[in-house]
């Protein structure tokens, strides 16, 4: 999840979420950055309104079954 956390950090600091900025943040945390995951993140976030995504209750239920492991 660290890639998504990086995005959330940038979002909550009102900074642009770009390949560059995400990489910087991950780097600084000592994460060995996988470029393709950064790219995938940026592309996945394209067109997503983060505020809205977070609020959309629709998702929450899905999360439920802690069963995961």
């Amino acid at each position: 999840m660290e890639y998504v956390y990086a995005a959330m950090l940038l979002h909550s600091a009102e900074k642009d979420i770009t390949e560059e900025s995400v990489k910087n943040v991950l780097d600084s945390a000592g994460v060995e950055v996988d470029e393709s995951r950064v790219k995938a993140l940026i592309s996945a976030l394209d067109g997503v309104d983060i505020e809205e995504a977070i609020e959309s209750a629709e998702i929450a239920p899905t999360t439920a079954p802690a069963t995961e492991t």
Binding site: I54, I59, T63
Partner: peptide, 22 residues
């Protein structure tokens, strides 16, 4: 922070270890 990050990951369908199941 955790929940919102999960939500974003799911809403953006960006799979992570934590969210692929979901």
């Amino acid at each position: 922070a955790y929940q919102d990050t999960l939500k974003l990951s799911i809403e953006a369908s960006y799979p992570t270890e934590e969210t692929i199941g979901k």
